[in-house]
Write a protein that binds this DNA or RNA. Structure first.
Lengths: 224, 224
DNA sequence: TAGTCATTTTCAAATAATTTAAAACTTAAA
DNA sequence: TTTAAGTTTTAAATTATTTGAAAATGACTA
């Protein structure tokens, strides 16, 4: 029972996909072009996206790339091309899976299940660990070297985001988009301040959040 | 850099897969039959499994099912059958993805990346490699001969540009236009300085950046 | 509803690092 | 050998980040 965004310009195909997903008990949102898709994505808590490549206005690859800036949801690319180059392009832009037309709706629905299962198992996971830091999402608690530390909401969100996206650099803008929300109008430097307090509370492990001047911040596990 | 278990009885195919994964910087464990696969799985911290269906002793579906009881790792099923029923069976047993032989090793490697990203958020995605140099765009890190080196923003940009445009000569003006931006008003010699520091940090691999007098610079892989 | 407290955001000074430019030095080509 | 071009060094200029403190916001309680 997930919210699925189906971005596909051909009505016939869209309907087939939607029918199948509804039968599986999912809720569907539909978009007829790339602009539509991005708008919906911004304004709705979508769990997974099925994305056609050949669409008017903005093509699927670009949608994929932009979507990745604001969310981590699974993306299945759906297209007529069976080109290897295209497949690799899709993966490079952050897609999770790739299906070529004509496709079996049953297999599509199985893929959706598999991805949702995986996405959920991460978010509901008992603990995320990195070096001496252990974070329990459900309990919203964090331990550093066995000692519990108290974090504010934003600090927690920030640390959680970093821990499930280790070794990836994020610009301040990206962090604002992903943690504060795309519509945060405020100052970019806000991120710095939260990084500061978070580092402070993490103590010796604070250095796991590394600054990349002119690029942003990333979380990396310290090798002892 | 994940630990991948490749369970496949045909040696030829196993080798192709392993070769590709090693090239991507992963570590590989191999199993020749289902029993083997389960034993290895029990005794090693495996990050992802590539699983053939038709194997001696215990078939892939059963391995998949049993594996799911003990761990949550991503599983890619690899098989000769392109049967829809089989695909669905794989998904039902908890597989994350499905590939049919003959397959493209590149696409397999992309699928591995995509699943690892989702499962662990290890992003080695799109690592660019040349000789002993490996560059990870998303992590903004560079390894020379397995050792991490620290680059400034401009150095990184420059190296990245060279590595995705190997064997091509660029004049200082071209480099300024492409990396600094067309509106950079400054001195052409600025490029030299950055080339110098970059070469220094690359150590023995510094000579990969070759000077072409009166023409500019190019990046070429050294033949060892 | 006003007051209090914790959290979040903004701001500006201090600090740190990177980038640039200019001059001195080396090497390669004519 | 002379000249042109590339490299290195150094220091100045620029740009980013960190920090500490104050202002704003929001949630809770009396």
């Amino acid at each position: 029972m997930a919210k699925v965004l189906v971005a596909e310009d051909e009505e016939r195909i869209r309907n087939i996909v939607v029918d199948y997903l509804l039968k599986d008990g999912h809720k569907c949102l539909t978009a007829e072009d790339g602009v539509d898709a991005l708008t919906i994505l911004k304004n709705n808590p979508v769990d997974i996206m099925i994305l056609d490549i050949m669409m008017p206005h903005i093509d699927g690859f670009s949608v994929c790339k932009i979507a990745r800036e604001m969310s981590n949801i699974p993306i299945i690319i759906l297209t007529a091309k069976n080109d290897e180059v295209d497949k690799l392009k899709g993966y490079r832009f952050g897609a999770d899976d790739y299906m070529t037309k004509p496709f079996s709706p049953k297999v599509l629905s199985a893929k959706v299940q598999a991805l949702l299962r995986r996405a959920h198992s991460i978010t509901l996971q008992n603990a995320v660990k990195a070096g001496k830091i252990a974070l329990m999402p459900t309990a919203r608690t964090v331990f550093v070297d066995g000692m519990k530390i108290e974090l504010t909401h934003k600090e927690f969100e920030l640390l959680y985001f970093f821990m499930i996206n280790q070794e990836q650099v994020f610009s301040r803008e990206q962090l604002l988009n992903r943690i504060w929300g795309y519509d945060f109008g405020g100052n970019t430097r806000t991120v710095d301040t939260h990084i500061k307090t978070l580092r402070q509370k993490l103590g010796t492990e604070g250095s796991s959040i590394v600054t990349l001047i002119r690029s942003g911040y990333k979380f990396e596990v310290k090798n002892e």
